[in-house]
Design a protein around this nucleic acid. Sequence first.
DNA 1: GGAGGATGCTTGACACGTCATCGATTCACG
DNA 2: CGTGAATCGATGACGTGTCAAGCATCCTCC
Lengths: 176, 176
Amino acid sequence: MTTMQGVQAPPASDGVLQRELQQRRPFRSPAQEAAIAMLRTADVVRRRLAAAVEPAGITLAQYNVLRVLRGSNPTPLATYEIAERLIEQTPGVTRLLDRLESQGWVSRTRCTEDRRLVHCRITEDGLALLARLDAEVDAADEAAVGALSNDDVAVLVRLLGHVRQGCGAEHPTADD
Amino acid sequence: MTTMQGVQAPPASDGVLQRELQQRRPFRSPAQEAAIAMLRTADVVRRRLAAAVEPAGITLAQYNVLRVLRGSNPTPLATYEIAERLIEQTPGVTRLLDRLESQGWVSRTRCTEDRRLVHCRITEDGLALLARLDAEVDAADEAAVGALSNDDVAVLVRLLGHVRQGCGAEHPTADD
DNA sequence: GGAGGATGCTTGACACGTCATCGATTCACG
DNA sequence: CGTGAATCGATGACGTGTCAAGCATCCTCC
């Protein structure tokens, strides 16, 4: 890219990250530093969210499915529609739903008009569960970005959007 | 207050219904939007990196272990030291090493001075594998953040660093 | 209306993340 | 010296991500 660094990556954040890491060598490029920062940060945020949700007996992946279903409630969603709306794409939605249904948070019925489809809805118990978790999750979100000003949050969201576009992946960012 | 919307209003006490309607909005808070953006973006980036690495027959997690070992080469690392330096913390390093060793990318030897430790080193074949993958991985990194200016990359890295600190998680992440 | 293809879901296989536990080894302290 | 705590690692169990294959159902086109 630019000529300013050969092997030496210019410190995007004055080398703080690098120093924490006890790295013997700097990042090969700013792009690499950014990619690693994104993966690590998301890992930390995911952990934080999972910790907020798991005391209730569900995993973060299950929670996200419930959020999607709450967002469409009372209209049911087909399994593939849930998959499309999840943060992390996965063909494993069927199994997530298996466990959610066995715990009573979700109900499934075979669609009569198109028997290939399975209509999924969140139950009253599921809604109550989410309502109980909202505060915890909001707190986790706030903890994650609380150190940032409103402007910084907006900038962060915008830059991340550019990154997603650059990776050529763009599907809706929906949940509730 | 909230604009009514005639979807089958359940007889809820005001708070409940209002909450439902609020959740029809895209995001409940800027913090939530940012958290979701981070998770989704990292997912996209991880996919891109995994695609760059898996044609060579290793997973992204295995690749990251090899990168850590290359970073310390020729000094061997104990298993727990590898775990500390991985991007995503995991107690499963033993199993990652099992597969890497069986494929010949890594060699392990029981430490003679402290028999609890297992010294792990990357093999010559492992180094060659990484050398072959460097270009692919660099390209993936560039693809991810290529849409951003250098200044934007620096801003992104800085903001992500603040988020990590806010989550109160600081552990090392080294790779090469 | 019947054949072929597309669609939606399920299942199986494997790797990984996560937690709990256990065995082996080392070290600190009495 | 010997006991007990701490450390390191392996292992088992469970949920999930990922790919591939299989099955039922629908649709299109002949």
